[in-house]
Every structure is written in C-alpha cells, then in structure tokens.
Design a binder for these strands. Structure first.
Lengths: 249, 249
DNA sequence: ATATACAATAATGTCGGACATTATTACACC
DNA sequence: GGTGTAATAATGTCCGACATTATTGTATAT
C-alpha cells in the first residue's frame, strides 16, 4: 500500500482547517498548525486526528516531517498512535501554548527531596482550589472523594481513585501549572525509580482525612484545606522515612 | 551526499557504547539508549552527540527513527541541532535526570500563573534555608545581600546581584530541586516574555526588605523568612498587575 | 608568522517510495 | 442477530536521493 491518496477520498472533517505551511517550517511549526486545527475544529481528548499522509498533503510537506512532529507529541503524552485506528488526542492542547522544558537532576535523597518540593505545591494548589473552585468542580471533588473512600473500603486498589481525586483538586485551583508540575514531577520520578510511589499501601493511612479535605475545599476554607494537605504530606513523608529505614508498613 | 558510511571513517569516541536495539524498539527506546550513552561517556552540556547516521548504524536502525527520537528531544530543549556542526546537548541528561515538559498558554494570565507557582516554592525554600543553612552559607548570604543593597544604592543594574542573592538562599535550603525548579521556571519564562522581567525596575521596591530576609534566614527564623519572601512575592505580583493594566512603573 | 578568501566536506533537513505490521471495517454465511 | 474471514486503512520502518547550512581545510597574500 503506497501513500498515494485516492483522488476522491472523502476524509473526516478534521483537517479542513490545515493550510500549507511556508517553506522552511520546522516540526514545531507543524505542531503549531496542528494545535490551531484542534482549536478551530474543537477536537477533544479521544478524538481522532487526520491520518499522517493527509496532514502532510494539506500542510504541503513530506510525511517524514509530520511523523517527527507527531513523535514529539507522542513522547510528551499528548497523543496516542495506533495502526489503522490512527492518532488520537490524549491531552489538552492549546494553540497559543509555549513549551517550558525543565530538567531536574535528582541526586542523593531524591525521594524525600522530591516530596519536599511537592509539598508546598500541593498545599498551595489546595488553598487555591478552596478559593477558586466552581460549583461543578465542587460536585466533582465530592464525588471523587466518595469514590476514593468506597474503593478503599471495598479493599480494592485505591490508587487510581486517589489520583483522580487529587487531579480534580489541581484542576479546581484555576492554575494549570500546578497540576502539570505536580503530575510531571511524580511521573518523571516514577520513570527513574520504580518504588515507592508504586507501593500499594503508601499513604493508605491518609485516606480517611481526604473527606475533611474535600469538605474544606468545597466550603471555601483555604486555611483548613492547606492544613490538611500538609498533614497528608507529612504522614506520607513519615511513611517514606519508615520505608527507607527498612521497616515496611 | 548519501547516507553511505565511508567504510573506514574514524568517528569520535562518542557513540562507542551504543549497541544494537532489539527489533520493535520505539523512539523512546532510542532516547533511552542515547541517555545511557551520554551517561557512560560522561557527555556534558555543550558536548556533541554522534551524527544521526552513526547513531542509526550503531543501533541497527534506520535514520528516520533516529530523527524522530532526536526531534522529540529537540522540541523539549534537551538538544540543539545545526547543520554540519551536528547535535549538541543543551540540558542535563543522566540516569538521574527527569525532564518536565511544561506547557504554558500564551495569554494574559500566564505571567501571574507562573508567579503563583513560584511563590510557594520560594517561600518554602527560604523557610528551609533558615532551618538548614550552614555558617559558611550564612556568611555568603550576608555578603550577597550587602552586594545587592550597595549595587542598588550606586544606581547600577541590580538584577544580577538579586539573582545571586536568591541563588544563595536556594543553595542554603539543602534541597537542590528547589533551586533547579525556580531558576528554570524563571529563566524559561524570561526567554518568552522579554518584558516585563526585562524591566530594570520590576521588584525594585522590594530591595530594602531583603536585608531583613537575610537576617531572618541567618538567624534561623523560618517563619519570618517565609513571611518576608511572601511579602516580596506579593509586592512583585502587585507590580505585575500594574504593568498588565498598562501602567508602567 | 598571521589573516583572508574560497572550496570541500560533514551533518542536518526534507522528500518520495516501498513495504511491513497492526487493527479496524466490511462482507459473507449461518 | 452472531461469527469468521478477507480487505483495507493507518501507523511503523527503512532506504535512497538531494538540498541546505555551517564548519574545516587549503591556498594565497602580507
């Protein structure tokens, strides 16, 4: 099967807004054009992007450059790509976005140091969530904490529910940088070191006070939200120290 | 010029540690192999990576996949690529380094959002500096604040002195991740927004209270250090808001 | 010796073509 | 309706050719 387009192929609507790029355009420009397309056509997470060969045709460039651009996005988690199924959006994309690439060099005591950096970010995000969250976000937070408590009570793995609850807090704070930083720090750490965030019991003792945290956020009590998050982080830190001393929970 | 390798081409040492990848390897695996090579051969920022065609040869893959992988790194600011000169390392890559691809929307709020993320980090770093700084670090902090005050009093550009003072605080906090995060967030942001951080007067009104901040840190008063940093950040924020409303200082 | 100019060359940038692999879709049959 | 199979769409991979850019090497002049 060659890349020759069937002359009368009716494609999806996606891609209609793509226009030829000027010569000399970089893979970054390709990503910019794709971002604008996603904006213009209102694509959402899960939606399919046009096939590579069509993107290439519409932008007036070779497929190789399209692939380089898309691989960049893929490695950043922004898209997922499957044969035949095509390329789907996996994260929010904005047309007017810049990329701020940060590099953290982890050295000794990286686990505790990473935790120490996350602590003020998590506290501030919770405080801001208490101040800024909308009624809809409050409902979501309430639902998410109920899910977390129920999952834990059922004896199932509650980590995904925990992640979802905290993500809803980050979203509610109104500043996407907090969520991005916290998530990426944790994810980057997990890629370098397998444990202990993967441990099924880490932080389990904090679950009951998540309800009070959700209540504080939803009722707009920033001081209380920040205090409880600090308490949660301190409990997790104590547990980390125990693990590091070779005493498993 | 084709991609055919001259049979007896003597290349640089870099690349000797690259071994053939198993079939089915992804561009992520390529980046992992390159990371291991950088580690093994002690490459530093500014050092040159092997040419694409050599990476491809040694890994036993096509050049296209190498290019896709390298483009991913390029778009994350980890490498820079120039014709003939080749590909150079632009950020730390090591077994212990994690890369956080932050995305920032280019809109009016971004200034304030970045500032909001820096605030808790700066406050926590100052608190930790108060708790952890050594006698030598305390002397350095004292000297740096004196330099800042003197530079400002002499009517000169005090921004470098300001940077050095705050760096000494970050260093004294005992957790290098704070300094790394804060510096890179500010630096990356400055590159995109030349103003207002390029303005020589932004934050000028905060300079006098830097002396009290240094004293609080050196004397070990974490609460006071955190309070003053918070005050500094709030004053800068107010100034940013003024600039955003079109009123230049 | 140093400086300048120019050609050669190395390395990235780009494209088209061919084919492999995978997963989805269409169609036939029960 | 459900099941099985073939066709097909889309990504994944590699190769070859050539363009572009910047560095390096060499010749010449002072």
């Amino acid at each position: 099967m060659t890349e020759n387009l069937p002359p009368q192929k009716q494609s999806d609507d996606a891609g209609n807004s793509l226009k030829e790029l000027p010569s000399g355009s970089t893979s970054r420009d390709v990503l910019g054009a794709l971002s604008a397309m996603i904006d213009a056509e209102g694509l959402r997470i899960g939606d399919r992007l046009p096939p590579e060969i069509e993107i290439a045709r519409r932008l007036g460039i070779g497929r190789a450059k399209v692939r380089e651009a898309l691989t960049s996005w893929q490695n950043m988690g922004i898209i997922v790509r499957n044969k035949k199924a095509g390329t789907r959006l996996a994260a929010e994309v904005s047309a007017n976005a810049i990329h701020l690439p940060l590099t953290l060099k982890l050295e000794a005591e990286s686990l505790l140091r990473t935790h120490a950096v996350r602590r003020p970010l998590e506290i501030e995000a919770a405080r801001m969530a208490a101040l800024n969250c909308t009624e809809a976000q409050g409902l979501l937070i309430t639902a998410r904490v109920a899910e977390l408590i129920a999952t834990h009570a059922a004896g199932e793995d509650w980590r995904q529910a925990d992640y979802r609850f905290h993500s809803s807090l980050h979203d509610a704070c109104g500043n996407p940088l907090f969520g991005q930083l916290i998530r990426q720090i944790q994810q980057g750490f997990n890629e370098v070191y397998e444990a202990p965030f993967g441990q099924p019991h880490l932080g389990q003792a904090t679950i009951p006070i998540h309800t009070k945290l959700a209540e504080a956020v939803v009722s707009g009590n920033a001081d209380e939200a920040g205090r409880i998050v600090g308490e949660i982080m301190d409990m997790v830190e104590a547990e980390i120290r125990q693990i590091m001393e070779g005493q498993n929970v």
